[in-house]
Write a protein that binds this DNA or RNA. Structure first.
Lengths: 200, 200, 200, 200
DNA sequence: TTCTAACCGAGACGGTACGTCCGGTCTTCAA
DNA sequence: TTGAAGACCGGACGTACCGTCTCGGTTAGAA
């Protein structure tokens, strides 16, 4: 029967793709992820359902690409981490910016939706991490390596693990509503992580 | 006409409730959360749909209670955190046990399902935290307070925040597939958290 | 997994059935059979699609039953064939009435639709004949038998075949648009059939 | 802007036309008329959909022309009606041949499909009659006129109507499955029609 | 002989309806 | 009065085709 032929992407309609991204993000923002339906996206985008099914295999995938696309066009290369020489101050500044972003509804609803889907759908979760999460984390890795050269962080520390000490707590509180989020909180995280819990 | 009267819980069928819990957990384990349906639970439990709708308002709630019930009958009061006087060793031991639990499929699928639902459904998320997550975390709070009295942790440290330095990274790696999980990893987390990243 | 259980017809909603019949007949009359859809019937009847699929297996079947039902409630026992003793006059009268009915749009559209479907769908065709066509034809059989006893029709004639000489031509002209239909035409058919083509 | 220009038939691809006819007839024979789709015909014929839409306006039209074409190339001018001088024998012979043809599946499926479509689609129905049915019937007209000149049929009889007495019953039994078809049956029809039902 | 206009295969597109599945409500009957 | 059973309305699912619309490519006849 061989009908599972891959579609010809050179003939893909750019206009439709954009319309689908826009509709998907708008709907997720307006009615939430679970009430966002493929039918709804298609209708809002003025597109046939088949045009969605032809290029994506689930609404999670649509939303993921829409979100990536949003980041690409809007963010440029997102925001780098400053390197003023004062590690604690630099980290606190970035985390404060992250706090703001996490509370911005423009990003919050689709991020949550994707994160939630990723929890339950391993493939999507890994793609989410690879495409969105890890690139951001690598910025911390770079900053921590720089701090190691400056002697501000012990050389035997693995930066990829180290960054989790202050990033993951914030992430968890946000994702799971397991605690309030504030500048004070993130400042505290940085201090604890840099200087440890034990007496010095 | 008023039909929205709360059902009389004294006449509730205990057998049905157990059957529903069992069916819900079994289905989530077998086909995953999204393919678990209320109809499916009802059929498997040999129960009418109305019996589910009468006592719960969503499949997330059913699963949540089923999971709580599982914990209650099985875990007793879960496992406490040992207090041998060696804080680092105690924390490493508990986190190693947690690693094992996170990899046990009996717990993994429903936990993930609930966590994911909680990400996107704030009400459920808060209940999840309150009923399942926070009680566990309080065990760490207690252990850290004890360590403060023993002088192993600086007195100005807030234990509720401190525990996140080693608990949240593990939680995030597990939830979001953002990194591998191992005894080595959790041991490292404890060391970093206790002694900080900065040179001592 | 054994979901093909027959529905329980004692609990069937009479109101829905009637609404579906009405909607089906109305739609066929308004937009024609090919543009009548199950979704359209369901929407017009204010009924879920599943309620149609639960009780019928195709739109042809729905329409068939709707039409039968129409006949039952409206027609009583349809119209009998008069027996005045004058066979030719009686047949001519009935055929004239049939001509009028065939031209009545209230009956024409659904009849055509069913007949057409029956041409191509043997099962439905046979049901159509059994439930609608044959009972009418049997009235002619009875009248012809009476004529045989009166000596107006030769005794060796098979009435079931004989009636086709004047009924089938009319049916064919109507069904296939193969010729005009008029009182004159049907009168002629009766004369030809009774007295034959050959010189007497 | 005007794009509704009639296509230039001198540049038409004969190969495509033949392939479309073949595919249409093959598909109707294999899966039946309703499951025969334009897309299916195009795919089977190795032809773009537009090539079909350019030259025909519906699948009924395609099939009609395919069928006409089949008749032309295969049948020659179909079969004439013999004129041996014995009218009854001649008619019986032709009707017996018709019985055989009606039971030949090579003709049956597309004929039924066209007839059914014609029942419900007046335009197509009339074309069907004009192109296929009426030419055949005219052969009977000719034979009956000859019989009138020979004195075997009363002169005031209208041959176009007369032929329906034996042709239409057969047609109806076939089309509507309203009765069995056999040589005996058609022989009887001829006898009844020629000599009438009334006592001579 | 080159240009250009059309047909052609292919298939993406906006749509409509399909037949299925399930959500959540309501009704019936047995215990 | 609870509970099992399941019919009901509604609505999304993912698929199949519809008829329209590009997109190269090929294949004439006109320049």
């Amino acid at each position: 029967m061989a009908k599972n032929v891959a579609p010809d992407s050179t003939r893909r309609s750019e206009k439709s793709r954009r319309a689908i991204y826009d509709a998907a993000l708008a709907l997720v923002g307006e009615v939430g992820y679970p009430k966002t339906t493929i039918e709804g996206i298609a209708a809002r985008a003025g597109v046939g359902k088949q045009t969605i099914y032809r290029w994506w295999s689930s609404k999670a995938e649509v939303l993921m690409e829409a979100f990536l696309d949003l980041g690409e066009q809007a963010g440029g290369e997102s925001y780098a981490i400053p390197d003023t020489g004062d590690l604690a101050a630099d980290l606190k500044a970035v985390l404060r910016a992250t706090v703001d972003e996490l509370k911005d509804p423009r990003f919050e609803v689709p991020s949550r939706a994707l994160a939630a889907e990723g929890v339950v759908n391993e493939e999507l979760g890994r793609k989410f991490v690879e495409k969105l999460l890890e690139p951001s984390l690598q910025l911390y890795v770079a900053r921590l390596r720089s701090a190691q050269q400056a002697g501000d962080v012990r050389p035997e520390i693995d930066p990829r693990i180290a960054l989790e000490l202050f990033v993951s707590p914030l992430a968890q509180r946000w994702l799971q509503y397991s605690g309030p989020i504030s500048y004070e909180y993130t400042d505290t995280l940085v201090d604890y992580a840099l200087y440890g819990l034990a007496p010095r």
